[in-house]
């Protein structure tokens, strides 16, 4: 009896895990294309504030041909400190009432042809994420719309950009190989960030763990 059971079913029992895996893979379309592709998933963890990041993405050139682009960049987080205010195109910006501004200094190193415009940054504290451009007002208390701007590239030489959010256009002026950027993020008073995250496209991102005493 026992012998005949294994004789008849042994092969199928061995194949069963493979079949289950195949079923999962066949039904994973939503997971892969609708979820993973639109969330931050794979972190490049910075070592001593330095992250060597590699990412590839498909986009259309101005001539409407599909092409694979890379983002090879070395990002160094030099400083994360609380500040009172900063200047932005002639205006002094402060945190909204009851908030605190944090300044993040970053140093970038990348070849001029890497597409690095339009990046996203967040300060994270206990799983709660804070974005730049929010909860900031001018020094006289009024606020302006449209605070957000280029965070990761020099404003005068951003390099290749996606002007309409789709087609890649090479910039007029070549971007230097190394440059520095400053990002300001407003947090509620008393909240200390424990991570800084930076990304361009999903699902890859850079994570800088912070230890602020």
């Amino acid at each position: 009896m026992t012998r005949s059971f294994w004789h008849g079913n042994g092969v199928w029992l061995l194949v069963l895990p493979v079949l289950i895996a195949a079923c999962l893979a066949a039904s994973s379309q939503r997971m892969v294309h609708s979820y993973l592709a639109h969330t931050r998933q794979f972190a490049t963890r910075a070592q001593d504030g330095v992250a060597i990041f590699h990412d590839t993405f498909r986009a259309t050139t101005k001539e409407q041909t599909r092409q694979t682009y890379t983002r090879d960049v070395k990002v160094t987080l030099t400083e994360v400190v609380p500040v009172d205010s900063y200047h932005k195109s002639g205006t002094t910006m402060v945190a909204a009432e009851g908030g605190r501004l944090w300044r993040i200094n970053l140093a970038f190193e990348a070849a001029p042809d890497q597409v690095l415009s339009v990046c996203y940054a967040r300060l994270v504290s206990d799983g709660v994420e804070y974005s730049p451009g929010a909860a900031q007002v001018t020094a006289d208390g009024s606020f302006e719309l449209g605070i957000g701007s280029e965070l990761c590239v020099p404003a005068d030489a951003p390099g290749p950009t996606t002007a309409n959010g789709k087609d890649i256009e090479s910039g007029d002026k070549e971007r230097p190989r190394t440059w520095e950027q400053v990002i300001h993020i407003s947090l509620p008073d008393g909240v200390k960030p424990d991570e800084f995250v930076l990304w361009w496209g999903y699902p890859n991102y850079i994570s800088f763990p912070l230890s602020i005493g």
Binding site: A96, E129, A135, L145, G148, S186, V191
Partner: peptide
């Protein structure tokens, strides 16, 4: 009308 971008904790 326009509204400010929300921020957690604010």
């Amino acid at each position: 009308t326009a509204c400010e971008q929300p921020q957690p904790g604010f």
